[in-house]
Design a protein around this nucleic acid. Sequence first.
DNA 1: TTGTAAGCGTTATCAG
DNA 2: CTGATAACGCTTACAA
Lengths: 343, 343
Amino acid sequence: MADAAGVSKTAVSFAFNNPDRLRADTATRIRDVAEQLGYRPNPVARMLTAGRTLTIGILTPQALSVVFTNPFFGEFSEGVARAAEQEGYGLHFISPRAGSLAGSLARATVDGIVAIGLNGEHPEVEQIRSGGVPMVVVDNRDMIEQPGIVVDDEGGAYAAAAYLLGEGHRSFMVIAMEPPQAGAPLDPNGVMGRRLAGYRRALGAHDLQIPDQALLMGPASIDGGIRAFRRGWERGDRPTAVLAMSDAMAIGAMHAARDLGLRVPGDLSVVGFDDIDLARYTDPPLTTVHQPIREKGERAARLLLRLIADGTGPFEREQLETHLVVRGSTGPVPPRRQVVPST
Amino acid sequence: MADAAGVSKTAVSFAFNNPDRLRADTATRIRDVAEQLGYRPNPVARMLTAGRTLTIGILTPQALSVVFTNPFFGEFSEGVARAAEQEGYGLHFISPRAGSLAGSLARATVDGIVAIGLNGEHPEVEQIRSGGVPMVVVDNRDMIEQPGIVVDDEGGAYAAAAYLLGEGHRSFMVIAMEPPQAGAPLDPNGVMGRRLAGYRRALGAHDLQIPDQALLMGPASIDGGIRAFRRGWERGDRPTAVLAMSDAMAIGAMHAARDLGLRVPGDLSVVGFDDIDLARYTDPPLTTVHQPIREKGERAARLLLRLIADGTGPFEREQLETHLVVRGSTGPVPPRRQVVPST
DNA sequence: TTGTAAGCGTTATCAG
DNA sequence: CTGATAACGCTTACAA
């Protein structure tokens, strides 16, 4: 404590927060002594009395070391950061510590939470809610009583599949990101479930199916895409088109296909999902479903900030649009793989 | 306080931290009541008594919303996160709040800091140091008394330029990331300064120069690269090769060049720096200087964690290697631009 | 097995 | 303008 400088703690406190309420020289003297002693007000104690942390948390059910592997996440965080910084808030990432989300949740010193990637009714989260920490969920339609931001996954996926069908494709490989806990049942309300529903709706019009077991799953990364495609290939899948639920995986799939001697889009069309920054610069440029990634993060953060400010603010659930962006990774079905109409 | 459950705070505390020291039923009863009341131990108060936050901070002198724009940063964070998570630490990002790094530093509740992007002797950071918060600096050779991780930027840059010279190039455009405060003097010890030194050493052998004013600067993003290249073009630069100090900018430069009708690598060779994941998937695949991005983050975090554990641990400064990866964005100088030896 | 009481380092209130 | 003193919500000796 710096009242070794001859003053009380009150004075020290004022010197840092309310210098005006001190005589000018007293204030500076205190700060000088503080600097000399290497003293700075303990931020934790500050938080305790202030009752707020000026920090918002981004919650993910997967380890950061895996989630940062997907460029999508960086762009999303960028959006959240923009809003947070503008309001003077810091950013804290909350991910499972030693496998337990609940554990890290319990230690998270944040004023509110933006949760992404939560599928279903995550039990550990119930705790947060009842604890009264404001939270907005993104991409989650299960926690319906929770404010959130959502995207038209189903519509985007439908557009992607419909487009490929229009190009004559009839044989598809579907690549999906695996849920946090491998082997978990597919949540129809989850991102994956909704995208799948979109694909199915389009294919259904042509009496084509996508059995659950046909899905190839892996981590949402380039490498995950490579491995998923190879697994499909090895079990005998010979699609003319790939529907990937993430751009990172789509890029991996393109690469794996090329390594196997396929031309993209000559022999194989690939469409992704997300439209990350790099999608337009890949070889070939990736056809994909655009979603406003940064805006999603920013809207989520702004909604949260409002919730924090208003105490228990307005319930809101915003939906953002998606649309297909056709670039170079897709084309008509190769002639010899064409399905001859049975007329 | 949940001793509305008929017990003292001690009991409540035990119920959460030392259940063994309570009769089994007491413990569960307390937790039940807590759950019912939506009570959870206040993490800030916990931190205060514990004297530690179980959190490490990643410090950047630039806004997160800009720094996340570069995929490099996501990969770096991934490395840091891997180490942090493994040791049960959370991750907090510290960036200027309302323009002031010092301000957000003062409020950051972390046990230690990994600082990246700090050039020169950042004054606000002095405060941290004397405050006794452990810190490891990455990519900084100015704060020599600070433990840190560093990369052979000069050697990597040299290799890149030497390779292009070997391909016959004699006319270069150099694209650099701009410093946090635009217009700041070039720090020869900074990342940019060292890479530039490497380029210059190679070009010097051919009596070629890179005047400071010739540098094209911009934010380290794809868009920054696009604009930098255009600016160069508009002022009349007609290089046969581009040396970009970041992959993101290199990708932007390739794109801008194509928009101007140049073929890459036919008319223009481009080499980047970093070797981000996506570098190998761009069109054409990017020739670039590889640095172990994730490892850099992970090593930095591990070093920090050791510092935190040992109190004032071992001073260490690790240097990681770089090397040129030749892919498709570079090739021989176009014939008609060839410089005829004056023999 | 459980409770009492003393800190942890601030800020805020209210006298002096 | 400055200084006691009481919170803030927890953990942890130490006692009971």
